[in-house]
Computed example of a mutant assay.
Amino acid sequence: MAATTPQRIIAHFDLDAFFVSVERLFNPAYIGVPLIVGGKERGVVSTCSYEARQYGVHSAMPIQQAKRLCPNGIFIGGNRAAYSHYSRMVTQIIADKAPLFEKASIDEFYIDLTGMERFFDPFQWTIDLRQQIINETKLPISFGMSTNKMVAKIATDAAKPNGYLQVPFGMEKEFLAPLAVGKIPGVGKNTQQTLESIGIKTIRQIAETPVALLEKVIGKYGVELWHKAHGKHEGIVAPYHEAKSISTERTFEENVLDLDRLMAELVTMTERVGYELRQEDKMAGCIAVKIRYPNFDTNSRQIAVPYTCYDDEIIPIAKELFHQLYKKNQPVRLLGIRLSELTNHAQQTNLFYNTEKKTDLYKAIDDLKNKFGKLAVKRGGGKN
């Protein structure tokens, strides 16, 4: 008799208004007031407190618009180092306990507990893990649990703020039915407006609509959306490994003693890995530099940094690490740089400190590289 596949058990954790919560740890005066964390005058809102949301403020909204909606709000630029620190704290707590987990972003995690019901009650285990995170970090965190990633994530949103919710096997469709179509991850404003134009406003209505009609109205995504409306989703929890990295090395045909040339090469390599990082929509929390000498003596040094994906922030750190390692007046055989501790959704996470100008600049640079090759745009000068 063929073995049956165990029913999946997926938990989704999300730190509530993460940047706001961290700021309130350092300044209790921010508690209970409309707090908006974002970029400078031309930047956008990264996150805001629930008090600010009552005024219509939301993530990715231009700062100037947020100020018009919430003139009495407190606007701050954010503290990347602190956010990175607390993200690592939560990651470590989960890593120490969970059999399999995915770090989806700086403040969001999936845990796969499939099969663990043989050893413990997965729901109670997840409740206990949430409480441990709260006790050790003093941060509010919510979770949802269900049979797949999509429903678990939607359950987390329903559980906020600072709560939890389980959607049992067989109840997925019923749980989703009354919710607005925009609650399904991946349904943007355009898709939502298109669906509403034919009278579809709830997930129940999607599920009751013939697949052929959905496909006619919104294309191939209509089939996937119909399955999602029935509570079906096949996405897996991708194991998180700190060792995952993006790196590049250069072995010189002739040993290099010229420091300016070494600096120029280091800058070029940093731009290369930074570009790859942004193409994968990731951020790095650790930077490492490696130097190998003609006698094959190899030294490397790494440092944890606030999560970033931008060359102008990575290059100075790479140069500093190089000088900490470099043996003066010694020729170099190999030079390398590695970015690790990667987290997803760089664009979303970057909102709290990016100005539109910086975002647009890197997008323009990367677009040129995509069109004309990675070496199409290079930073001028490699000197210190």
Rank of each mutant, 00 (worst) to 15 (best):
G186Q: 03
Y110M: 02
L69P: 04
Q302A: 10
Q64D: 15
A376E: 05
A3F: 14
N329Y: 12
I314M: 03
D367T: 15
Y275M: 11
L321E: 03
P316Q: 09
K189D: 10
R8Q: 05
E356Y: 13
N79R: 15
R272F: 15
H85F: 14
I133T: 03
Y83E: 01
Q330D: 10
E51Y: 10
V90E: 00
L213G: 11
A17H: 04
Y30A: 01
T268L: 15
T349A: 12
L257D: 11
D112H: 00
H233V: 09
P34Y: 01
G144M: 09
R250T: 12
S197D: 05
R24C: 05
P210Y: 05
N255K: 12
E102G: 04
E108Q: 04
I93T: 01
I10V: 06
R338H: 09
K189Q: 13
L277A: 00
M269Y: 05
G73N: 08
K282Q: 13
I10S: 02
D14G: 01
V181Q: 04
L335C: 06
D107L: 04
Y110V: 01
L165Q: 03
P34H: 01
A60W: 01
M150S: 03
R333K: 10
G199Q: 02
K290R: 08
L113A: 03
V22A: 03
V22I: 09
K40I: 11
P239M: 02
A17S: 10
